[in-house]
Write a protein that binds this DNA or RNA. Structure first.
Lengths: 197, 197, 197, 197
DNA sequence: GTTTAATCGAGACGGTACGTCAGGTCTTATC
DNA sequence: GATAAGACCTGACGTACCGTCTCGATTAAAC
């Protein structure tokens, strides 16, 4: 505790400048080519200030995603499950594309090879959002739109999986029609065969 | 043209040493921490020799995967589709885990941020294998095990997707039971509702 | 003018703590490795407080020497010129050795490359002491112990010179016997050849 | 031994560029303000190349002095001892002045606080030259120009000392007349009182 | 006895340079 | 002509201090 920098005296303007510069540089050059030096230069900030508050470039980008995620509303619940899923997944697709300039895609790539960063990413950004998504699915399940014994983890894998499959191999994110097809298949497999839906 | 290295004079022993050293170093330190310098030192080879034949560390690893893929047999076809899928996906899981020392996972991570490497990876390693996998599915479709109008791309997304979803967030690869569950869901959504399977 | 610090409000305890910490750190690590940050930490003082009253580390050390010099008595005058010179030079040797932890030696080294600090050092510490030394020599001259036309600057150069010559090349300070030899030579060259001394 | 860089492959042009750049920068900014980064930039060389062959800025400057010393002829021997000393000391004065841009003065200042550098400076540059100077004095002694029992170390201290005394306090190097006076005093103290010189 | 204004501790800040590391190119000598 | 060895330029890394600055809290002078 005693070693932590004194957050009370932290300069909010520097923090903002760093986050903004990082986002801009990701957009311009792609996550991979962003360097801490360039962030510092663009933000008009010393490298020390970046390293004082974040352990690495990845942590800065993580905070960007974290902020973005905080602002984002909860998963929609209009009553139409398929439509809500479409809305939700479209938003995720928007975060991941285009993969070579998306901070999110860059961070996922780095986190793949950095367990610490991966854990941070999962705990601070992914799981909270997934939890809400799962709640949405649970509500649907309680309303009989999903099989009562459906495994919601399976649902998450079937719905999110294709996005990351395609991301991994630059296959291009699903277009709206294809996304609907994917959702339809996922839902069909999670719905009782004799359902009257 | 005159500048292209003359493959006829290429030293096979150097090539082997490089590939072996790379694979060992990936296993020991993880893809991320492997450097061309370390490969050269371990292989008893000059960096120049590596760069003469491969453009980057990623390309070396790609060749390792390529070789491994060539050796691997075609997707199994025992007649039992679910079992064959299980076999096939288990093999992929074996390639991807553990994600921090798997050359494949490392290469996917790097390719995410390097379009050229991504293209190479897709064309030389992924697509040929997927093509065979798709053939296997097509045979199943012709035998009525899948809906005649099922979209095989959807099948690929539903079957492979969960692996990459879990890879992306260090969620752990599916265990055999869960894998069966995933396969069952995928197949159910690709099978006519009135199917007697 | 309004910006000049108000000496009346100055905290004497901070001043003392800074000077003490500096002296300790010089002794422990050598002048070169002493930093303003370390002084502040050791003294329990903010860097701002140091910079408010001194322009640099060198100035702090200068004040230490200045204080020490003020305490020190005037050059001795027992009537025995050679003995008095021996006493005086021995004291200077004590200040300069051991050269890597002596604040004085460190300051001289830094002043060599910093004209401003050099001027301060000369004006505040060196010249006042040299003036008294010169007076002592003048008294000796008036008493016929030195040639009436002896150049006292030469005397200073011959007497002090060897110390700095040896300091410059880590040749070790003269031991008492050698010091006597040096003094004898200096005096001989400053004394009339037919002197009956 | 195995860890030492392979001097056989060393680039002489880089070495020259580094030494030249360093000398220029010393002359322009003074030793103190010369940085390894600036040397590298001016020489069109990477910092790595500098650190491969020298441990520090001081070592580079040391090599400059070493080279200069190698080129310089031996101490003169015209038979006129006082004149030869004058020539020799004038050359040393030329090396040390002006003290704020002279590489030699800067190096002496740094070596004062860096025992390793000090030892290198002494062994590689100072002692070889002093040895020849001492030989010159010994020849003079054998020819009866100095007292047969004169201590040549004392001679060195008396002759070189004033230069370093004045260097230490920015007192200005002796002008030719004053230098003659100093030499005359030193010689008088080293010559038998009844000498007929 | 209050004001009140400067100093104090703490330490964040923009900088400069450090010394190190790896990338990818080029040179030299060997086979 | 390909190779092993490794020097080279480039550029980024993460760190150490510099000297400046902003914050409340303290404190001594002026009211």
């Amino acid at each position: 505790m005693a070693k932590a920098p004194n957050a009370a005296r932290r300069s909010e303007s520097s923090r903002r400048a760093i986050l903004t510069a990082t986002q801009e540089l990701c957009g311009e050059n792609g996550y991979r080519r962003v360097t801490v030096e360039a962030i510092a230069a663009r933000a008009g900030v010393s490298k020390k200030t970046i390293y004082r508050w974040w352990p690495s470039k990845g942590a800065v980008v993580l905070e960007i995603l974290d902020e973005a995620a905080s602002i984002t509303a909860d998963p929609p619940d209009t009553g139409d499950l398929a439509a809500d899923l479409h809305t939700q997944l479209t938003e995720v697709i928007g975060l991941l594309a285009p993969s070579h300039t998306s901070p999110a895609a860059g961070l996922i790539a780095e986190a793949l090879q950095d367990p610490d960063l991966g854990r941070e990413l999962r705990e601070r950004v992914i799981e909270p959002r997934i939890a809400k998504f799962r709640e949405r699915l649970r509500r649907a399940q309680q309303q009989g739109q999903l099989s009562p014994d459906a495994d919601l983890d399976v649902a998450l894998d079937l719905l999110y999986g294709p996005l990351y499959h395609r991301l991994a191999f630059h296959l291009g994110m699903p277009d709206p029609d294809y996304l609907d097809t994917l959702i339809a298949h996922a839902l069909r497999s999670l719905t009782p065969p004799d359902s009257t839906n």
